[in-house]
Computed example of a mutant assay.
Amino acid sequence: MDYPTSPKQQLRKTIRQRKKQHSPEQRQAWSDEIERRLLAHPRIRAAQVVMLYYALPDEVDTRHLADALLAAGKTVVLPKCVDDAHIEPRLYTGPADLAEGIYNLLEPVGPTFNDIGRIEVVVVPGMSFDDEGHRLGRGRGYYDRFLEQVPEAYTIGVCYHFQRVAHVPTDPHDRAMDEVVSNRA
């Protein structure tokens, strides 16, 4: 029996299919382009504390960006899944700070970054974004809940060009990004 899917579920399915159309090498080249854009971004250049994410295999790769920002003297914070509903920011001082976490992904094991009001920029992954900054995540709401705690932080969604769509279905609790950066303008 086929069950009806929500617009969000359907868009996630579409984006997963689009990702499969591109090789890991192509996605890495696009990730490198996005990382260059982020390194040159005025908000990131001016910020002292930046929260990134450590990418899943199908996401825009930010590993080099984390290390480059660290080398530039910035405080880099990464999210750690602490349960099935929440992430907490952890201080990142290099690749040795990472260990396999709750979803078999590398997560920070450094100390909790408790002064979240100092986070100036949050770079956020997503399944899809639209031109209004609406974001479709993976469906667990981790970032929506976390971003409520840092309302003053400037949010930058990152994705490959094929993840951008005309309209992302939203719910009242979904927070739009201040800006979206992809590998094509």
Rank of each mutant, 00 (worst) to 15 (best):
L147I: 09
E88H: 12
Q149Y: 05
A96Q: 08
L38C: 01
L56V: 07
P24G: 12
P57S: 05
M177V: 06
C81N: 04
Y54L: 06
E148L: 13
H64F: 03
E132C: 05
T62H: 06
G73I: 02
D84W: 13
R118I: 12
S182G: 08
R140E: 14
S31E: 11
A72N: 05
G139C: 10
A153R: 03
V122H: 04
L39N: 08
P125F: 04
I87C: 01
H173E: 06
A176I: 12
V50H: 03
F146Q: 07
V76W: 00
R45H: 11
R12S: 00
V181Y: 02
R18V: 10
V122I: 11
V121S: 09
S6Y: 11
V49E: 06
E120H: 13
V122F: 05
A85I: 04
E107C: 10
I119G: 09
V50Y: 00
R43S: 10
T75G: 00
V122D: 02
P172V: 12
P4W: 06
R135T: 12
N114Y: 09
A46L: 10
N183I: 00
S23P: 15
E152L: 05
V82E: 11
T75Y: 04
R18G: 10
V77Q: 02
C81K: 06
S182H: 01
R164H: 11
E100H: 14
A68G: 00
P125D: 07
Q163P: 15
G94D: 04
K74F: 07
G73H: 01
R27D: 11
L98I: 09
L98R: 04
V60R: 01
S182W: 00
Y3R: 14
S23W: 06
R18W: 06
D2R: 13
